[in-house]
């Protein structure tokens, strides 16, 4: 007799939510599943264990929206970490001066604004599906009048765009002041 092999979950996507206790992990799983996120309870690797034997495996790209969802539901977690690497999220920027415009770059995201008006001229780089949406909603508007990418976006690309946006806003406000 042959048994069909159950299809393996596609969750294993590089991210892990770490909890202080088992109750928090189980509650977070219920919240995320209700929100249609693919997630799975797993035992964290020893190096990432913080006292609780359960962690939630998630798609790391969705870290921003998952954190937002859990915080809104007052679900407690310690941190969201990549399964590999240092776990340090990128937070440095590079600035390029085009004369009338300035481009701020964070990881794979670039935001360019007009020096005089503070209007966002372009957003380039990145690859997650919320970036074209953020492009439409932010370009040709003033830095001080847009909703931040962190509030509107879902993914790590949006989070990197937020790093560039915050630096651009800071640069422009310093210039205006």
């Amino acid at each position: 007799m042959f048994f069909s092999k159950k299809e393996k979950s596609s969750v294993a996507d590089g991210g892990l939510i770490i909890f202080a206790n088992v109750e928090d992990a189980i509650r977070a799983e219920k919240i995320l599943r209700a929100g249609s996120f693919e997630t799975r309870l797993v035992a964290p690797p020893p190096a990432l264990r913080r006292g609780c034997d359960l962690a939630l495996e998630i798609n790391l790209t969705e870290k921003p929206v998952i954190e937002k969802t859990l915080l809104e539901k007052k679900s407690h977690f310690l941190e969201v970490l990549p399964l590999r690497g240092s776990g340090e999220l990128f937070n440095v920027v590079k600035v390029k001066d085009f004369g009338d415009a300035v481009m701020v770059k964070a990881a794979n995201m670039k935001l360019t604004f007009d020096k005089k008006t503070g209007v966002i001229l372009n957003i380039s780089g990145g690859g997650c599906p919320d970036i074209p949406y953020l492009h439409i909603s932010m370009v040709d508007k003033k830095l001080s009048e847009v909703i931040s990418p962190k509030e509107q976006g879902y993914t790590l690309c949006a989070l990197m765009l937020d790093v560039a946006y915050r630096e651009a806003l800071h640069l422009w406000q310093s210039e205006v002041a």
Binding site: S86, F90, C157
Partner: peptide, 14 residues
């Protein structure tokens, strides 16, 4: 070798 998204690239590589 470790980054699963450009948001986690090593600073020296960026």
């Amino acid at each position: 070798p470790d980054a699963v998204h450009p948001a986690y690239i090593s600073r020296h590589l960026f």
